[in-house]
Every structure is written in structure tokens, then in C-alpha cells.
């Protein structure tokens, strides 16, 4: 008689593991800070977790240096990403192995994604910025998931903190994306790109018609001209608002994720936070994808020939 199997283990084992986890959850909840508040006693020392004190501004672990903890983390991310590529491309072989295979996979995945959207010529322009943004955001998000990462204290402040939760980092990336997009648009179309924002041609031709005596056509022309000029102003606005939305999408998601994980650790110290760790890993990837992908999308829109 064959035993039933679930997830590759026998059913009995799964049941035992579930029961153990359930006990751990209940015990950690009752023994933790929340349980202590409910029962009125003291929390057990191993479960005693401080409630999170979210602070949006990055901390300065070294009082005398203008270096924030997010900056240190950003540097670590940079070192990791750079180290990965450096190690992989130092002795490249025609037949790839190991690390080289891995970075080539990253490269090809990115290149395919970008060239599908933007075509071969523009894809080669967009590739470095979009992929670097993706890798940087991803590295920041995932390095933060190393257990104990944010618990290292220096002069009473955490030494390391997810760089994506420092508003300066998303803003910086948004600015980079913004400048790159405008540059590509200008590069692809030249001066006519500016007409996206400042288009007074219809207005001018309307005025001309008015002065040459075609009153009706002139007024209609002026009307369209004003609308077109206004649309240009809206376009300018949208480009700047885009930057803000870029910034706060990443910042908000990452900060919320960090706070959520801390809260879960505070509420139920054992087992349950692991789920949120997994979610955070997924959200980090998603946010990196969104940031890089949106940069790509807006870049495509900027270089696209207007029909």
C-alpha cells in the first residue's frame, strides 16, 4: 500500500511539522510583547521584541561623518553587483560556465525584454540605465533580507538599512531616469522633441489667419492652438509628476514592507514573519522590475516617432 505524499513528504510528517509550527506560533504570540499586554504579565525574554519605531529619514551611525546608513548599504549593494559582474567577466570563455553563465543569463533576459519593447537600436541606448536601475534596486532590496541585517548597531543607530527606504535613493533613481528619458527623446528626435512641450505652431498659424482676414478659420485655429499649447504644459507637468510617482512608489513600497515585517516580528516573533520575508523578496523583485520597466516604457514613448 503506497503512502500518500504531500510536497514530497509523507502526510504524517507534514501534519507533525504543521502542529509544531502552530505551537511555536501560539507560544511566541502568548509569550511575546502582545501576549504580555493581554495577560498583564511580563513578556518572556526571548520573545521580548521592541515595537517598531519607524523613522523615515536615514540615520547617521557615525556622528562626525555625513554618511547615512543607507549610503553604506548602497555601497555594499554596488560592491555586490559590481563584484558579481567583475568575477564573471574576468576570464570570459566562449563556452560559458558557472558565474559567466549566470550574468549572461541576466544580460540576455534584460536585453530581450528591452529590445522587445524598444527595438534593436533604441534598446542598446536604454539597456545600461534600465538594467543598472533594476540591479541596484534588487540588490538593495535583497541584501536587506539577510537575517540580522538591520540589527547591527553603531553608536545607538542601525549601521545598515535598506537603501530603498531612504527617500533620497528612489528620488535619485527617478532623477536619473528622468534625465535619461529626456536625453534619449532629444537624441532620437532632435529639436522637434521640444515640440512635445512647447508647440505654438497651431496658435501662430491661427493668428496669421485672423490677421489675413479669415476671421472664422482664425478663431478656430487660435482655439486649437491654445489647446495644443496647454497640452504641452500638461506634458511638462506629467514628466515631473512621473518623477515624483517613481520616487514614492519605490520608497513607499519598500518602507511599508520593512515596517510590516517589523510589526509582524513584534506581534508573532516566530514562524509567521518568514512568510513576510518571502513576500518582501518577491516585492523587491517586483519593484525593481517596475522601476526598470517604467523607465523603459517612458523612454520608448519619448523616442517613438509621432504619427
Amino acid at each position: 500500500m503506497a503512502k500518500r505524499k504531500v510536497l514530497g513528504c509523507s502526510l504524517n510528517l507534514i501534519i507533525i511539522i504543521s502542529i509544531v509550527f502552530l505551537i511555536l506560533i501560539v507560544v511566541s504570540f502568548i509569550g511575546g510583547s502582545v501576549g504580555a499586554l493581554i495577560t498583564g504579565g511580563e513578556p518572556l525574554s526571548i520573545f521580548a521584541v521592541q515595537p517598531p519605531h519607524p523613522q523615515l529619514a536615514a540615520e547617521h551611525p557615525f556622528p562626525n561623518l555625513p554618511i547615512t546608513n543607507t549610503m553604506i548599504t548602497a555601497w555594499i549593494s554596488i560592491l555586490v553587483v559590481f563584484g558579481l559582474f567583475f568575477a564573471a567577466t574576468r576570464r570570459m570563455k566562449l563556452v560559458p560556465r558557472g558565474l559567466q553563465n549566470f550574468v549572461e543569463f541576466i544580460y540576455e533576459a534584460g536585453a530581450n525584454f528591452i529590445e522587445d519593447a524598444a527595438g534593436k537600436k533604441h534598446g542598446r541606448w536604454f539597456f545600461p540605465v534600465c538594467v543598472t536601475i533594476f540591479l541596484f534596486v534588487l540588490a538593495n532590496a535583497w541584501i536587506n533580507l539577510i537575517p540580522g541585517f538591520e540589527t547591527i548597531k553603531m553608536n545607538g543607530e542601525p549601521l545598515l538599512r535598506n537603501a530603498n527606504t531612504d527617500v533620497n535613493v528612489p528620488l535619485m533613481l527617478a532623477v536619473v531616469a528622468f534625465i535619461s528619458i529626456e536625453y534619449w527623446g532629444f537624441k532620437a528626435k532632435g529639436a522637434p522633441y521640444l515640440e512635445t512641450f512647447f508647440n505654438f505652431k497651431p496658435l501662430g498659424s491661427g493668428l496669421k489667419q485672423l490677421f489675413t482676414g479669415k476671421i472664422k478659420a482664425g478663431f478656430a485655429g487660435i482655439f486649437t492652438g491654445i489647446i495644443v499649447a496647454f497640452a504641452g504644459i500638461l506634458e511638462i507637468l506629467s514628466h515631473f509628476i512621473r518623477m515624483v510617482s517613481f520616487t514614492f512608489r519605490l520608497f513607499g513600497n519598500m518602507t511599508a514592507g520593512a515596517i510590516l515585517t517589523l510589526i509582524m516580528i513584534f506581534l508573532i516573533p516566530w514562524v509567521v514573519p518568514a512568510i513576510f520575508y518571502g513576500l518582501e523578496a518577491f516585492f523587491g523583485f517586483v519593484q525593481a522590475m517596475i522601476f526598470g520597466g517604467l523607465t523603459l516604457g517612458f523612454a520608448c514613448a519619448a523616442v517613438m516617432a509621432e504619427e
Partner: peptide
């Protein structure tokens, strides 16, 4: 920092 990473990746990686 980011621009340095970008430059490094372009020359060492991409």
C-alpha cells in the same frame, strides 16, 4: 555612487 556603478557595469559587465 549610482553613476559609478553604472559606469563600472558598462565597462566591466555590459
Amino acid at each position: 555612487s549610482f553613476l559609478i556603478l553604472l559606469g563600472l557595469l558598462v565597462y566591466v559587465g555590459y
